[in-house]
Design a binder for these strands. Structure first.
Lengths: 201, 201
DNA sequence: GTCTATATTTGGATAGAC
DNA sequence: GTCTATCCAAATATAGAC
């Protein structure tokens, strides 16, 4: 006779070990770069042989994919957690600042999310999904500012992403480009915002 | 008794082979990605064993460095070859278009020049020098438009580089972002150009 | 669930014959 | 200047004992 248990201790243990491996992987890539993720090194960090990791992840790419996925979820969470603002343009300023902080805070995570630099790695549709949601959500937020054209949307993304790219590739950890965000945001809305939907100041 | 010759046939042959190796390296990375440059593969493409390549380049990084250097020289040449324009702002538009075309034309070259993606590779000061020259030259061109602040300069670079980055990472070979260049350039000058130095239209 | 052992591949680089 | 012969190191992954 089998009894139904309310907890699966084995599954809990398994999940905890997976988590531990992912944490170690983040530590490793932050210390030595994305490309330095190697099963041996990773195993050493969690006190295992490389081979044992295959119990938890079917391949190295599966580890990258899990990291990609949780980063994307985290970013989406950061953005959707922002408090509502009375002025939608002020909201966009806040969003871009939040996005840039997120990118600068962890350059390796940025590289994993936004630069396709690991040979052979492509995120799975499931882990990529939050990125699409974020993009959609951004489009809506910009629409609330009265900006609807696809070109204008692309321009906003390019502006914001451009700052992050410059910052991380030229002065990781600094703020030389990031601090231009508010100014460029103003410039953007001065140019793109239809006169009718602007507030009087 | 030794005679002074006007040509060094051996040196010419050597230089030609080096050139041939570099050409093959470009072909290889364009076909299989920057990270796929391996001495064995490269050797195969020029009809040599990998070991023989060491006669021409002391290491794999030396090959990357040579490629980096010649790309930088080429970019500088593209920009400095631009015809002078009566309107300096028109000149900047032309420069950014030329820059973007250069970046989009060859995404792998772009990656080598502007994204530090090869583990362990850092360009030598000699091959990096043209990049500094170009930056200095760009600063001067922007100054001719009446724009002198360091912040404004950084903003220009971020704007242009942002377009290139978006284009190459999201739609290599396309023009979805690149075609925004003129519009963003206008937006930039509307915002940053001091009123006194603007032309009447 | 972790281990030992091992297969397999790949890649950078050197020594020395020709 | 190109080759053969090697070396060495690193890395992914599988099989099977415990």
């Amino acid at each position: 006779m089998s009894v139904t248990l309310t907890r699966d201790r084995r599954a809990e243990r398994y999940a905890a070990t997976r988590r531990e491996i992912l944490d170690a992987a983040w530590e490793l890539v932050r210390a030595e770069g994305l490309a330095a993720l190697a099963m041996r090194n990773l195993g050493a960090r969690v006190g295992m042989r490389a081979q044992s990791l295959y119990v938890y992840f079917p391949s190295k790419y599966a580890i990258y994919d899990a990291m990609f996925g949780e980063s994307n979820v985290e970013l989406l969470r950061h953005i959707t957690a922002l408090p509502p603002t009375a002025d939608p343009v002020e909201g966009m300023r806040l969003r871009s600042k939040t996005f840039l902080d997120f990118c600068v805070e962890d350059p390796v995570r940025y590289q994993l999310l936004f630069q396709r630099t690991i040979p052979g790695f492509e995120p799975s549709p499931e882990t990529y999904e939050p990125a699409l949601r974020l993009l959609e959500e951004s489009r809506a937020a910009l629409r609330a500012c009265g900006i609807t054209s696809a070109r204008a949307f692309d321009a906003w993304i390019a502006l914001t992403a451009g700052l992050a790219a410059q910052q991380n590739s030229n002065e990781p950890g600094g703020d030389r480009w990031v601090r231009l965000a508010a100014e460029l945001s103003d410039m953007y809305f001065e140019h793109y915002r239809p006169a009718t939907s602007r507030r009087e100041t």
